[in-house]
Design a protein around this nucleic acid. Structure first.
Lengths: 225, 225
DNA sequence: TCCGCCCTCCGCCGTGCGACGGGTAGCGCC
DNA sequence: GGCGCTACCCGTCGCACGGCGGAGGGCGGA
């Protein structure tokens, strides 16, 4: 059973090229085409393709918005493969958020296009090498930071780490004291110990350290009050 | 020209299964096999395959360590595809750091294995759907945080944002003053304004806010002194 | 022109913070 | 038992921090 594909691109010439490329593979069948985002949503609903090849830059509605719309009210297993010329970070993030299964650049060799379609049709997720490299960079950077600074964290006692996390929440000494059921003076002692051990100066630098070391992470904390 | 693959797995039965699967595709050629991490390095050096299918759990040296070794002294275009039963986060991160081009689970259908090999051979990067979903979750979470809190940042003036970033570096008032070429009293004024606008209490909470809002990010800052 | 916003600077004052010294309990070792 | 080490818990004291009020200048818009 062949993979049913819808091709979305505002430039008819480019769209035709994609259709022709995919046509050479007999396990792939182009069942619909669309030239705008609105059309893409319509086409997806009526033809229910397995994979939607989606351009980003289009009139009336861009491909990312169309993607999220399609994914939102899809009651069948559709997968969207974003196909674009540029790859700025924001596009990638928005695409992933919208529910796209892949993000590849238009400069890929023709035979890879079919491979990409098969990959996402199989349930896989595909990203362009350059993008994946950035993702890897993000995470590896995080890890190197962890290993580099986190060893300083090991010099701290359990109690001191508790205090550090509390400080990194923005808590005052008295709040920490009541949270940990100890005296306010004791909290100060712990903090002083942390400061000397880590070579820091004040609690603000403790917060910085907590984030940089990965002890706390942006996102698992609500601020304000 | 076919894709030259090396299969690394300590269980001969599993390894044989993979070899057989790949053998049915005439564009893929298994040129070597290995049963341990050490062997994998040897085999990679002597046979110089295009793709290494790498298991993680192995005696003497796990696949991730072997991967980084192979990538380290590879003077040809080798790509490593991690193939494992489990997918804990640490494995994924370590694998990406080690330089792997893909990370898929062993429970994928046989035909997808060939697709995966072709994808990484083409220079693409492939992640198992579950892993990609987590990656997407990470980034989408970041974005929602940004949009949610960052609007509070807009209430601040440019100068106030400068002060906030300085505070988020762990700088004291006098340090900020000399950095910005203004008086220490002015710094205090800005900080007071920031505190009231954001509904915060002290500079430590400013640091928290700076990280949570994405104004500063863990990694682009060295701490200590 | 007047009004509002931003940036800059100054004083005063209360307080939370951090440095310093000291105390207690547990634990391993000779 | 005596000694050393560590973790944990209190006090006191000086100081930077933050709240509050005020003031001047630049800049743009009603």
């Amino acid at each position: 059973m062949s993979i049913r594909v819808a091709v979305v691109d505002d430039q008819a010439l480019v769209r035709g090229g994609f259709v022709m490329m995919l046509g050479t593979h007999d396990d792939i069948e182009v069942v619909a085409e669309a030239g705008t985002g609105i059309e893409a949503i319509e086409v997806a609903r009526t033809h229910r393709p397995d994979v939607v090849l989606m351009d980003i830059r289009m009139p009336d509605m861009d491909g990312l918005e169309a993607t999220s719309r399609i994914m939102a009210d899809a009651d069948w297993g559709v997968r969207v493969l974003i196909l674009t010329t540029f790859d700025p970070d924001e596009y990638v993030y928005r695409a992933l958020r919208a529910g796209a299964s892949g993000f590849v650049l238009k400069d890929i060799p023709p035979e890879q296009l079919a491979t990409a379609v098969r990959t996402v049709a199989d349930g896989g997720a595909l990203l362009a090498p350059s993008i994946t490299r950035r993702l890897i960079g993000q995470f590896s950077r995080r890890l190197t930071i962890d290993t580099a600074i986190a060893e300083r964290l090991e010099r701290l006692t359990d109690r001191e780490r508790e205090v550090v996390t509390a400080v990194a929440r923005g808590a005052s000494n008295s709040e920490i004291a009541s949270d940990l059921f100890i005296g306010a003076a004791t909290v100060k002692t712990h903090i002083s110990s942390v400061l000397t051990k880590l070579g820091l100066r004040d609690r603000a630098q403790i917060v910085v350290f907590a984030y940089e070391s990965g002890l706390v992470e942006a996102g698992d904390r609500d601020i304000g009050h």
